[in-house]
């Protein structure tokens, strides 16, 4: 969707939060429909049916599809200055009331709720400066059910790709029904410990129907997708043919003595929205490769 400017930046960010909360990205919707088509387990089919019905209702009624509206994680790429953080914070605060989003942020020690989804260190924003003449803002709403299943392991290089695959599959199986499968498995391989986890999460922003430019990564994603679905864990961990809708892997160079691997699972409601703001227009979409 394209909108002509002027549209204030804060309003664009509010639109992103509303879009992400109420409309499931089309690529995930298609994957769910495909899954419902091949699913042979009746309990699993009922779970997929309930999910798809809920997605339709949320869009129609403009309500958040999930009560866990998560922590909104922002990615800002292109040209920007530090004022964008203020606009993002204001938009989060406004949308908490207006959509409404559930006030989720608490102090980690005394556990008191801030009431506005802000607080120390919030909102969470990743900045990617480039020489482009546009500003791209992406948001992903990350609920705790999936985020709590995040894993990082610093493997030994001798563990090799077999070790990497085993860790990924074990992580998804161990998580069971907790991260609301069938979702997306975000994987980071390589980098430093912090970058590895960041890659695993960033992978979830990418539409499922976008192919990785690297043939080895594509093959790995396909292998993991098949193996995890063959496990039979199923939607919500209740059994079935559909455990994941997609696997997205990102890699980065790492130390010769390291083999970091991270798993960040996205629930079926991997809610994302992006806006590319040029001098004249705003282009809205619901997935981006960063």
């Amino acid at each position: 969707m394209v909108v002509k400017l002027p549209e204030p930046r804060e309003k664009v960010i509010e639109n992103l939060l509303r879009l992400a909360n109420t409309k499931l990205p089309a690529d995930i919707g298609w994957a769910l429909e495909a899954a419902a088509g091949w699913e042979t387990n009746p309990t699993a089919a009922s779970q997929l049916g309930a999910i798809m019905e809920n997605v339709r209702k949320a869009e129609l009624l403009a309500k958040p599809m999930c009560q866990d509206t998560g922590i909104p994680i922002f990615y800002v790429r292109g040209k920007f200055d530090s004022t964008i953080a203020e606009d993002i914070a204001q938009a989060v605060k406004n949308c908490t009331k207006a959509i409404p989003m559930r006030p989720n942020t608490v102090d980690p020690i005394i556990r008191v709720n801030y009431g506005n989804n802000l607080g120390d260190g919030m909102p969470c924003i990743h900045f990617i400066p480039t020489n482009d003449d546009f500003t791209e803002i992406a948001v992903m709403l990350k609920g705790a059910g999936s985020e709590n299943m995040t894993k990082l392991k610093m493997l030994n290089p001798s563990d090799g790709m077999e070790g990497v695959k085993k860790f990924i599959i074990d992580s998804v199986i161990e998580a069971g029904g907790r991260p609301c499968p069938p979702g997306i498995v975000g994987v980071g391989i390589g980098g430093t410990a912090d970058e590895c986890v960041a890659m695993a999460k960033r992978a979830l922003l990418e539409p499922l129907d976008m192919e990785d430019p690297d043939a080895d990564i594509q093959a790995l994603e396909e292998e993991l997708f098949v193996k995890i679905n063959q496990s039979g864990l199923g939607p919500m961990g209740l059994g079935g043919d559909t455990t994941v809708l997609g696997v997205k892997v990102r890699k980065s160079a790492c130390h010769t003595a390291s083999l970091p691997v991270a798993v960040n699972i996205g629930c079926w409601a991997t809610r994302r929205a992006c806006a590319r703001i040029t001098d004249t227009d705003v282009f809205y979409s619901q997935g981006v490769r960063l």
């Binding site: 209702k57 609920g143 029904g177 609301c180 209740l238």
Partner: peptide, 13 residues
């Protein structure tokens, strides 16, 4: 009783 995760609008109804 297992409810379907994320199906928040339907359960609210």
């Amino acid at each position: 009783l297992a409810a379907t995760g994320g199906v928040a609008v339907s359960y609210a109804e």
